[in-house]
Every structure is written in structure tokens, then in C-alpha cells.
């Protein structure tokens, strides 16, 4: 009886610690999952799975160390090991959907508001964001991953090496190739926006 109470207390403590240390990473983690899977439901599943794994291995997690990198690493591994197999290669489908959407004339035609100055500034911002997202989503997942980790989440090369289980030299070369590839995709668009080389 007393043993059970003790156990329950420690579980409560563990849960509280777990929530305090790891739940604040939920937002970046979900965004990472979404950028990997390109699907909100899949991202949801992947994040839940990551937290459950993290909970199982929480005893190995040293308090105060880099919780974000630790969770990102677990999520990346889950994605590779289980998720990727069952995923239906959504990248191309999603990209072409977005592409089709922006190529269709209906978008501008129906709204009619896009011509007012305020709307225009805002929609240009949105459009750039959408364009960057499409270009990024069209990259191979390994390239997409390093760009997200570095530019969106601000991980250092060393942290990225740990998350991805690759040497720092590989992080650097992969990032370099990923950026060249992204640059290529955005170059045409950038020129149309007036960013000439």
C-alpha cells in the first residue's frame, strides 16, 4: 500500500517535470514534424509518438540539458524508422496543389480587393512566405531538414550533428547543397520580385 503511494507520487513528480521541461518544445517540434510530413494529421501523430517515447526514456534525460535538441532527435528517428515507410510521399502532391492554386486565375479574379495598397503589402508578404514554403517542400527531405533546423530553429552545427547523427562536416556540406538547391528554386521567383543577382 505505502509502496504504491510512493510510486504514484514519484509518477506525479515525474509527470510534472516532464511537462515543465519538455512541453515548452511542443510548438517548434510540431512545426518540424509538419515540415517533414507535410500533413497536419501525420505531424500530430509523429509529435505524440515522440512525446511518448521521450516519456519512456525520460530517466535518461539529464535535467537542464538541451531538451529541444533531444526531442528533435527522437522525432527525426521516429520519422525515419517508422513514419517514412508508411508515408505516402506527400511532398510532390502538396507542391503541385499549391502550384496549381497559385497558377489559377480564379484567385485574383474573385477577390478583387488585392489592388488596395494595404492588402497588397500584406499579400506580398504572404506570397513570399508561400513561395518559400513551396520551394522548401519541393526539396528532398534531407535537404529540407537541415534548412529547417538551421534557419528556422536556429540550431548550431554541433546540435544538428547530434540530432541527425552525422558528422559536422556532413552537416556543412548537406546544408550547402540544400541552400544551393533552394536558391535555384527561388531564383526565378526572386528575379520576378526584383532581387536581381
Amino acid at each position: 500500500m505505502s509502496e504504491q503511494t510512493g510510486k504514484q507520487l514519484s509518477k506525479e513528480e515525474k509527470d510534472a517535470r516532464f511537462e515543465a521541461e519538455l512541453l515548452p518544445v511542443l510548438d517548434p517540434l510540431y512545426n518540424f514534424a509538419y515540415r517533414l510530413t507535410l500533413d497536419e494529421d501525420d505531424a500530430n501523430d509523429l509529435v505524440q509518438e515522440t512525446y511518448l517515447k521521450a516519456y519512456r526514456f525520460f530517466d535518461y534525460f539529464e535535467q537542464g540539458t538541451n531538451a529541444k535538441a533531444w526531442l528533435f532527435r527522437i522525432l527525426k528517428n521516429s520519422f525515419i524508422n517508422e513514419f517514412r515507410k508508411k508515408s505516402k510521399q506527400p511532398a510532390k502532391v502538396d507542391y503541385s496543389e499549391v502550384e496549381g492554386y497559385y497558377n489559377s486565375d480564379d484567385v485574383e479574379g474573385e477577390g478583387g480587393v488585392a489592388s488596395t495598397t494595404d492588402m497588397r503589402t500584406e499579400s506580398v508578404q504572404d506570397l513570399i512566405g508561400d513561395e518559400v514554403a513551396s520551394a522548401l517542400n519541393a526539396l528532398p527531405v534531407d535537404f529540407r531538414t537541415v534548412i529547417i533546423l538551421c534557419d528556422l530553429e536556429g540550431f548550431t552545427y554541433e546540435e544538428m550533428a547530434k540530432i541527425l547523427d552525422i558528422p559536422i562536416g556532413t552537416v556543412r556540406s548537406r546544408l550547402h547543397r540544400a541552400r544551393n538547391s533552394l536558391k535555384e528554386k527561388l531564383e526565378k521567383y526572386a528575379k520576378s520580385m526584383g532581387y536581381n543577382s
Partner: peptide, 24 residues
């Protein structure tokens, strides 16, 4: 362009709750 313009997706409110529930 990536850090300034890529929109962040909004975490569904139910996600944190269901994680907590499953952990409990």
C-alpha cells in the same frame, strides 16, 4: 527568406492535452 517569411503552423489545442492524457 526562410526565417523571416516561412509561416509557422499553429499547434492544435488538443495536442498538448492528448499528450498529457496519454502520459498519465
Amino acid at each position: 527568406l526562410v526565417c523571416g517569411h516561412l509561416k509557422r503552423v499553429i499547434v492544435p489545442e488538443s495536442l498538448a492535452l492528448s499528450i498529457k492524457a496519454r502520459i498519465q
